[in-house]
Design a protein around this nucleic acid. Structure first.
Length: 637
RNA sequence: GCCGAGAUAGCUCAGUCGGUAGAGCAACUGAUUCGUAAUCAGUAGGUCGGAGGUUCGAUUCCUCUUCUCGGCACCA
């Protein structure tokens, strides 16, 4: 006699055990049709799930997030079914739900082609239209293994073999096809109406690069065609923001085959780069950091001592001279320890905060390179803080304050914080880890920050806090980091003389706010869709005349603004004003200053903002004031 | 690095079922001196990523290679 409590608090009583579908039908025929699954308590179940005791139940439809997951999961199954139908000798493996869609990995004797993909999609459409019932059954583990082995599905059998023998295995079937699955799934394939196969890719079996490479097909699936269309539109919009496009279109930078993963910064891109670097430089200087410069190339022995040669030799560029081996630095820290070691330090000197905008090279695998986001040569807003264990907490707090300040200036306020603690393989005594992790945790809590624990994700030499931010279209980028290091100062013999006259090893904090400047610029460009805030814009305004009569006046205005420190271009070409405005608008220049005879007579300029707003005729003083204010506030235009 | 796809003018792209290529924008020349997102006309521009092979002939087919793109693994 189950009593079913619905989300609105209403209750329905039945005199026999009921399925989720029964309850939905009892509520109304519309809901019965739309029901994809049910949520009993916290568990999402099939509509065929039988409820015999009192329960809280929500009927899940495509409008529910859980409903979307069910649709995506079922669409993955639909795809696997289609693949097996078209390519019977393909083997199925796993097919989970991911953000916005799903994928399924297959093993097949040849690679799938884009033509195969559209054939699979067509076939999926037919299977969905056939509205096949999806049914769940159970087998004992050993029977399930035997079943899949018999079907020639060796990967599936392997997965099931790793499940405890006493557990029953859930099988979902539709038509003549069955897959091992926890479920839940839609009641019939007719509920799958809005999906699209997106791309083909390789993926290692069980995510291990020593294993066979499988073929992964990615797809997206939604509750209805409209949502699918909206998603595809969002993808197009994201593509338009691709920072690599702005590299060429705005003449900021380029990459070429002779220097894979290493950026050629053009005039305008380098201006942007320098504005950012100098901005951080000033912030660090105000924050009590010293700035240093260390060599690009250091002897092998130093990298052996630091441990890098042993661990990362594949990923370092090396060179030689007169029988000596050198490595081009992949990081600044060993160099900083050399400066630290040059002289004797008292505990009174600590903390020492040492910053460097040093150019680093890492020989990243070729397949990982990606525009500015993943490069082989980069500069970080890098610094190392040498301090005592007792100073960790305060230094971390100071750093976070600085970081928030900097992020806000760049227009990012949505910061995501992760604390990563000791990994299995690590150096340093557990007592030290206890202390360090507690210190980081305590700082985060004291500052009242939201953070997530990533247990076991710390570096081998110490725990760390990572800072990510969300951009304007919701993508998350990890930028900042604060890593505690108990290993390197000791390896490289850094010491200080403590209060009691005993030499002790300082703790070293590796920290960066923006991370790689290259990558940060990539993130900025995508975040702002190329329309940079005034203070960052490589060209802040263009002054242009209507005819040649205003040439001298244009030059004078431009000169005045340049003297105030603004980045100004002038356009004296004999072109129509419409063309000039179009071209500079396309270049995303924050302000266009147009002068004709009228402005020349009045000593004013006609101001036009990047978004097309006509700000009317203004005096040069008013414009200067506006610009200075924008820079001071670092506000978006 | 691995799987797959791609590389054609400065940029964006079309094309050639094997007979050495075409558009728009940009560039250059000329005309136009014009009031807020494209003035008109003309000219020039390519060893079709690189190397090798098949062929009478390769930008096209094959092999290798470099780089790029999408993933996977990696990311001190």
């Amino acid at each position: 006699m189950p009593v079913i409590t619905l989300p609105d608090g209403s209750q329905r009583q039945f005199d026999h055990a009921v399925t989720v579908a029964d309850v939905a039908a009892d509520i109304g025929p519309g809901l019965a049709k739309a029901a994809l699954a049910g949520r009993v308590g916290d568990t999402v179940v099939d509509t065929s799930y039988l409820i015999s005791d009192d329960a809280d139940l929500a009927i899940i439809t495509a409008r529910d997030d859980d409903g979307l997951d069910v649709i995506r999961h079922s669409t993955a199954h639909l795809m696997a079914q289609a693949v097996k139908q078209l390519f019977p000798s393909a083997q199925i493996t796993i097919g989970p739900v991911i953000e916005n869609g799903f994928f399924y990995d297959f093993s097949y004797e040849r690679g799938f082609t884009p033509e195969d993909l559209s054939a699979i999609e067509t076939s999926m459409g037919e299977l969905a239209k056939a509205d096949l019932q999806v049914s769940r059954s159970e087998l004992s583990r050993d029977d399930a293994v035997a079943y899949f082995k018999d079907q020639g599905e060796h990967y599936k059998a392997e997965i099931i073999e790793s499940i405890p023998a006493e557990e029953a295995i859930g099988l979902y079937g539709q038509g003549d096809w069955k897959d091992l699955c926890r479920g839940p799934h839609v009641p019939s394939t007719g509920h799958l109406k809005a999906f699209k196969l997106m791309k083909l890719a390789g993926a290692y079996w069980r995510g291990d690069s020593d294993n066979e490479m499988l073929q992964r097909i990615y797809g997206t699936a939604w509750g209805d065609k409209k949502a699918l269309k909206a998603y595809l539109h969002r993808l197009e919009e994201a593509e338009k923001r691709d920072h690599r496009k702005f590299g060429t279109a705005l003449d900021l930078f380029h990459l070429q085959p002779e220097a894979p993963g290493m950026v050629f910064w053009h005039d305008k891109g380098w201006r942007l780069y320098l504005v950012i670097e100098n901005y951080v430089r000033e912030k660090l200087s105000n924050g009590g950091y010293q700035e240093v410069r260390t060599p690009q190339i250091l002897d092998r022995s130093l990298w052996e001592k630091s441990g890098h040669w042993g661990k990362y030799d594949e990923n370092m560029f090396t060179t030689g001279s007169e029988k000596r081996d050198y490595a081009i630095k992949p990081m600044n820290c060993p160099g900083h320890v050399q400066i630290y070691n040059h002289g004797l330090h008292s505990y009174k000197d600590l903390p020492i905060r040492m910053a460097e905008f040093g150019s680093c090279h890492r020989n990243e695998a070729s397949g990982t390179l990606h525009g500015l986001m993943r490069v082989r040569n980069f500069v970080q807003d890098d610094a190392h803080i040498f301090c005592t264990e007792d100073q960790i907490q305060e230094e971390v707090a100071r750093f976070i304050e600085l970081l928030k300040d900097v992020y806000a200036d760049f227009g990012f306020t949505d910061i995501i914080i992760n604390l990563s603690t000791r990994p299995e393989q690590r150096v340093g005594a557990d007592a030290l880890w206890d202390k360090a992790e507690a210190a980081l945790e305590s700082v985060l809590n004291t500052l009242g920050l939201d953070w997530t624990l990533q247990a076991g994700e710390g570096a081998f030499y110490g725990p760390k806090i990572d800072f990510s931010l969300k951009d304007s279209i919701g993508r998350v980028w990890q930028l900042g980091t604060m890593q505690l290091d108990f290993s390197m100062p000791d390896r490289l013999d850094a010491q200080y003389v403590d209060r009691d006259g005993v030499k002790r090893t300082p703790v070293m904090l590796h920290r960066a706010i923006l991370g790689s400047l290259e990558r940060f610029i990539g993130v900025l460009l995508e975040h702002y869709a190329g329309i940079l805030p005034f203070w960052l814009s490589p060209v802040q305004c263009v002054v242009m005349g209507i005819t040649h009569r205003q040439d001298e006046y244009v030059k004078k205005i431009a000169e005045t603004l340049k003297k105030q420190g603004f980045r100004v271009d002038l356009d004296l070409r004999n072109e129509k004003i419409g063309l000039k405005i179009r071209q500079h608008s396309v270049q995303k220049i924050p302000y266009l200053l147009v002068v004709g005879d009228r402005e020349m007579e009045n000593g004013t300029v006609a101001l036009r903002a990047q978004n097309g707003d006509d700000l009317g005729s203004q005096s040069v003083e008013a414009v200067t004031e506006l610009f200075a204010d924008l820079v001071a506030k670092r506000s978006r235009v």
